[in-house]
Amino acid sequence: MKFGIYPGGRAGVTCSRESDPGRVGALVGELGGGGPFVVREYVHFLGARPDPAVVASIGAAGELDGLTMPDDWYVSGGRELDLVVSYIPAVADLPGWLGFLDRVIERYAGITRYLQVTLEPNFPIPLIDGSSPGVMAALIDGLPHARRALDARGHGDVRVGFSVAEPAEWLGGDAEFWRRLGEADLGGVVDYVGLGLYPDAFGPPVPVAGVRAMTEHALRHLREHSLVVAGIPATTPIHVAENGSPSLAGRDQVASLATMLAVVREQEAALNIAVYELFALRDADTGGGEAVGALGLVTDYYVRKPAFDLYRRIVAGG
């Protein structure tokens, strides 16, 4: 299993300050240790006439000009880029979306290893793709379109997939989403399925035993139920595409992350888990007092937390 991380300092609309590329490079280099290490980044499709306030709120300006770090950084030191293309227009726009995928592929395919088409399209909350009009068409048409576009440009080695939030009871139910995927018969163009996993992040504190049970349930539910409904075979790997726990008063970030990672490793072979990516390197807003701002291994001023050394040791141990 490969490990990785989101290196930026933004979580949705929360971002206290811009990233410091020098510090990002040093910290990610230390975590990766020169071996294979996956780096997750995001670009966003907001439609033909995006609201400037929304663009600013999620930091989406200039995403096709460059990511957190220079291009060559993503293909050096053993790193592999996992690039998420998020679909969040105010009105459905399938032609615009497919054209945007083409532009993203033209710009970034040469440095990309994994291309994720949509972000959690089963999760209907604001500024996540599941709330966007036309998201099912964006996913169902976007996956084969991306595959064809990559192949036509000589990038057949780029793996194409999508991510979801799981399990269903955390979301209010997503049976219709998986049923429609199954009807679309996409198994032949899905190289992996990503999972967003935050069992103890956005509710009351959860004891370690609860974190363990919720993590295993989410992983097994995805593999043994949801992917079966969608007709996606067991040979298609799962990527734990996002996983995090906040460092807030009354919570033990180290214990939670250690527990979740232990479960992932225990289930790695049985559930075919190929990649684990932690969210995130840096807090989005350490002083804000909210879970979404405190998921990092370091503070928003890049001061290390105990969880940094925990993850470094886990990555080093393979």
Rank of each mutant, 00 (worst) to 15 (best):
G59V: 09
V85W: 02
I238A: 05
L31K: 01
E80I: 06
H239L: 14
M214K: 14
G96A: 06
E290V: 15
L248F: 11
T286Q: 06
G318L: 14
P36G: 13
S57V: 06
A138E: 01
A241C: 11
G96D: 03
P133H: 14
E268Q: 15
P204S: 14
I88F: 14
N122K: 09
A209G: 13
Y302L: 05
A209K: 06
G156A: 14
P52Q: 15
R49L: 10
H155R: 13
K305S: 09
L248G: 07
G47R: 05
A258V: 00
T68N: 03
V254S: 06
L186E: 09
D185A: 15
Y302I: 05
S247D: 12
G35M: 12
I111A: 08
M260F: 01
F202C: 11
S256Q: 12
E63W: 05
R179A: 14
R103W: 04
S131C: 14
L222E: 01
L261R: 04
G231M: 04
I273H: 02
Y301H: 15
G161T: 10
G293L: 10
G142R: 08
D93H: 03
P7E: 00
I232C: 02
G231I: 05
L98G: 06
G187K: 04
P144C: 13
E166C: 09
